[in-house]
């Protein structure tokens, strides 16, 4: 009889604990669900996302000329390269195998990449114009700007120098200038982002 009473009490306690567990879980679940909208509201909003890609008309850019457009709040360099600039960039290419691993790097590139891997059409070099050192905008878009020893860009903040493929050659920057996602919608229109 004592056993029966004991087990009944035990069963009652299990039921009670289950209820408390369910209630506490419901409260925790509710709290977690409520937190998400707050955090999500800090993510980019609709109007910011709408400007996450831009279409640029490049029909007016002459050979040897460069334009700068604003994309996601940052400058994007679009340079129409001369054949000499393309050749110079290719001369410094590292040797890569079929998989893309670097076999040799005669030019001593800090961030070895082939020029071909950085462009879709060799004539058009499209780069994010932000120095990979500490974020300044390198000079070299205007013909009057200094371009550094390698004919590309020169960053006035700490002296980083980029070549005609936008690769870092000299100075403190660790990486080549970034290449954004882009597609040529038409021959004269490129969509960035």
């Amino acid at each position: 009889m004592a056993d029966h009473a004991h087990s009944a009490q035990g069963a009652g306690e299990t039921r009670r604990d289950f209820l408390y567990l369910m209630s506490a879980s419901a409260a925790a679940f509710g709290a977690a669900t409520v937190v998400w909208p707050f955090i999500s509201s800090m993510n980019p909003s609709g109007d910011v996302l709408a400007l996450s890609s831009i279409e640029v008309d490049i029909s007016g850019v002459q050979v040897g000329q460069a334009i700068t457009v604003k994309w996601r709040g940052k400058p994007v360099f679009i340079r129409r390269r001369t054949p000499e600039e393309i050749a110079e960039a290719r001369k410094a290419d590292p040797e890569v195998d079929a998989k893309g691993n670097v076999i040799s790097n005669p030019a001593g590139l800090r961030d070895p990449q082939t020029d071909a891997s950085r462009v879709k059409k060799p004539e058009w070099l499209i780069l994010v114009g932000v120095c990979t050192h500490l974020g300044c905008v390198p000079l070299g878009q205007k013909s009057s700007d200094p371009r550094g020893e390698f004919g590309g860009w020169y960053c006035p903040c700490h002296g980083s120098q980029y070549d005609t493929s936008g690769r870092i050659r000299k100075g403190p920057a660790p990486l080549d200038l970034a290449v954004p996602d882009y597609v040529f919608e038409k021959d004269t229109v490129v969509k960035i982002g």
Binding site: P37, F38, S40, S41, N43, S45, G46, D47, V48
Partner: peptide, 13 residues
């Protein structure tokens, strides 16, 4: 109105 339309869950907040 931007909060109501464009911010994620802005309308809810």
């Amino acid at each position: 109105e931007r909060i109501m339309r464009d911010v994620n869950y802005g309308w809810l907040l």
